[in-house]
Computed example of a mutant assay.
Amino acid sequence: MRQLEAIFLDRDGTIGGDDTVHYPGEFELFLYVEKEIKRLKQDNIKIFSFTNQPGISNGLAKRQDFVQELKGFGFNDVYICPHRHDEGCSCRKPNTGMLIEAQQKHELRLENCAVVGDRWSDIVAAAKVGSIKILVKTGAGKSSLNEHFDKLNDVNIDYIANDFKDTISWLYRNFILSNRL
C-alpha cells in the first residue's frame, strides 16, 4: 500500500465555485472543504493548490490575490499557472510543470500523491506523472466524463467521486487509514 504524501487540488469546481472561474473575493468553498483540509493536515498530509488561472495573464486578477486566498483556506503551498492556453508554457494543465515544481521543492514522490480535479486536464496531468487520479463530478466533472471522453480514453481514473467529501472518504479508506493498520 502506498503512503499518501500530498494531495494536489484544483480550485474552481473542485473545492468550490462551479465550472467557471471566480476571482478571489468572489470564490466560495463548498461547506465541508475547510474542515476536510484541516483533517488532512492533522494527519500530516500536505495540501497543495494546482490551478490554471489565465485571468492573471489577461490582467483580470493578481497572482498574489489567489495565493493569499488559497493559503487562507489552509493550503501548504500554491501552484498557479497564470498563462493562457496559447502561450505555450510547461505549467498549464495538462502539462506537468506545477507538479514537477512541487515535487522538487517538497521532495515528493508523485506516485504517492493524489491529484483531484473536475476537468480532463487535471486527470491527464496526474497520469503523466503517475499520481493517483481522482475526478470529481462537481464543477465541470460530469461534462469532462461525457464530452471529453476521448481525452480520458487512455487514462485509468483511480476514482470518480461525487464531490470533494466523497474524495476524502475514499482516500482515507484506501490510503490514509489503511497505512495505520
Rank of each mutant, 00 (worst) to 15 (best):
N76D: 14
K46M: 10
D10Y: 02
L181I: 11
G130W: 07
L110R: 02
V129E: 03
S169E: 15
I7D: 01
E69M: 15
Q104E: 15
R63D: 11
S143C: 12
E36T: 10
V136L: 01
D154M: 13
E36M: 11
Q68D: 15
Q64G: 07
I47D: 01
K93V: 03
S90A: 13
I100L: 12
I168E: 01
I56H: 00
L152M: 06
R173D: 15
H83L: 05
T167Y: 04
D77Y: 09
R11Q: 01
P54C: 07
V129W: 02
N156E: 15
D10F: 00
P82N: 06
T20I: 15
I7H: 02
L60P: 10
Q104W: 10
K105Y: 08
L145R: 02
D118F: 02
D163Y: 01
D65C: 07
I15M: 05
G117F: 03
C113K: 03
F164Y: 06
I7P: 02
D18K: 07
I157T: 08
H85V: 12
N112M: 07
R173I: 09
C91T: 08
P54I: 09
A114Q: 04
E5T: 09
N44W: 12
F8E: 03
R180Y: 14
P24Y: 01
W120E: 07
I15G: 00
P82Y: 05
I56F: 03
V136C: 00
K128N: 12
C89G: 06
A127P: 06
G117V: 02
R11N: 04
F50K: 00
L110C: 09
S57Q: 06
R173A: 13
V136A: 00
Q64C: 08
I47A: 03
N146A: 11
G25K: 04
R39D: 13
D166E: 09
N146T: 13
K46F: 11
E26K: 13
K46I: 07
A140D: 10
E111N: 14
R39V: 09
R39G: 10
R109D: 15
I80E: 01
H85T: 12
N58W: 11
P54W: 05
I123M: 04
L110H: 04
K128D: 12
I100V: 12
V124I: 13
P82C: 04
M1A: 11
N146P: 07
E107P: 09
N156L: 15
I160G: 01
L181W: 13
V33R: 00
A127E: 10
Q42P: 09
F75S: 01
S90C: 11
H83P: 00
S143M: 15
L4Y: 02
A6R: 05
R92V: 05
N162I: 14
A61V: 10
D12C: 03
S121C: 12
E87G: 10
H148L: 10
A127N: 14
L70H: 01
P24N: 10
E26W: 09
I176V: 11
Q64Y: 12
L108N: 03
